[in-house]
Computed example of a mutant assay.
Amino acid sequence: MIIFNYLVVCLIFATTFLAIKIGVDASAPPFFSAGVRFFVAGLILLCWMAGRRKASFSMLFRKEMFFTGLGMTFATFSTLYWAEQYVSSGIAAVLSATGPIMILFIQTFVMRQKTTPTTILGCIIGFCGVVLLLLPNLTVTSNLWWLIGSMAILIGEFCYCSSALYSKRVIQRFSQESPIALNAAQMIYGGLLLLVLSSFTEHVHIMSLLTIKVTGSLLYLIVIGSMVGHSLFYWLVAKTNPFFPSTWLYISPPIAVIVGMLFYRETTTWVTAAGVLTIIAGTVIANWNSLKELTLNSKTRTNSSKV
């Protein structure tokens, strides 16, 4: 069940990059559309869980829900939505693939957890992949906004990784609550903060939101991206650890690049492809021991169930 849900998360999150790009290109205000997406999805999920008596609205008064929403939803997606005005969905997905490397960095140098030479080698390879990915545009002055957008995604990804580690502690602290309900509460806060940001920075025209592309993008992101995808991600964090679910970030980029090329006519180059493969190789090498341990644990559980 864990592996199946993980693969679903990879597929869903890979397609959300393109859904965001379609909405932004169709003139949807980035912060407003992101805010609506997460606030509506979180509110529906929390009401549904409360109706089933598996959650209480009192959790909204816990500071942990606010801080998780601030990092995991607000900081991450305010930068991503804004950046996708200047960066293709495939490149956005690839830059987000630095997430597992960032988690390892935080665990090693901030949380002082032990690391291995293999992990360090993987981090170096992954970093080289990011440099290789950015290289074609670093020398072109007309692509300054592309560079700024790329840096914004990396900053947002760092916030996402920090919050993923923090969310594990929150899930353990509120072990009596459903991970789905905890995810809903943080999305509500993240969505509200995005709407507040939008009110100060954007002029929202309701008619521009009623086009097929904007409405379709928003509905897909609310239902599939947030209600299904993020709930499964939170469930995986509760059942495993903060690292394993985050590895969707290097499974999804190739999917996102292919989807962008096939359905949105986004272009790519051999250098970009090399950057993609290098980042993926780096993160796989860096986390090889963890992936092997997870595989062995899965086989052990399977054999135990058969006995």
Rank of each mutant, 00 (worst) to 15 (best):
F13P: 07
A26P: 07
T211E: 02
S78V: 13
L182C: 11
T116Y: 03
F127W: 15
P245T: 07
L209A: 08
V214H: 10
F109H: 11
I212R: 10
L209E: 07
Y250C: 00
M151H: 01
P100N: 10
W145S: 08
Y166C: 02
S167L: 00
V204S: 10
P179F: 00
L46N: 13
M49R: 14
K299A: 05
I280Q: 06
Y86Q: 12
V130Y: 12
T240R: 02
L104V: 14
L197S: 15
I106R: 08
G90A: 03
G216W: 13
K63R: 10
I206R: 14
A41I: 02
R301C: 08
A274L: 07
S167Q: 08
L11M: 10
I258N: 15
F109I: 01
K21D: 09
V228Q: 06
G216A: 08
W235K: 05
E157M: 05
L221G: 06
W146D: 01
M261E: 03
L182A: 07
T15D: 11
L104K: 13
V257G: 03
I258G: 13
V284W: 07
T211H: 14
I101W: 10
L209H: 13
N137Y: 08
C123L: 12
L154D: 10
G99R: 02
P179M: 02
V196L: 05
T268K: 00
A41K: 02
W248E: 11
A93D: 03
N241W: 07
S96W: 09
I125A: 04
V257E: 05
L195H: 15
S78D: 11
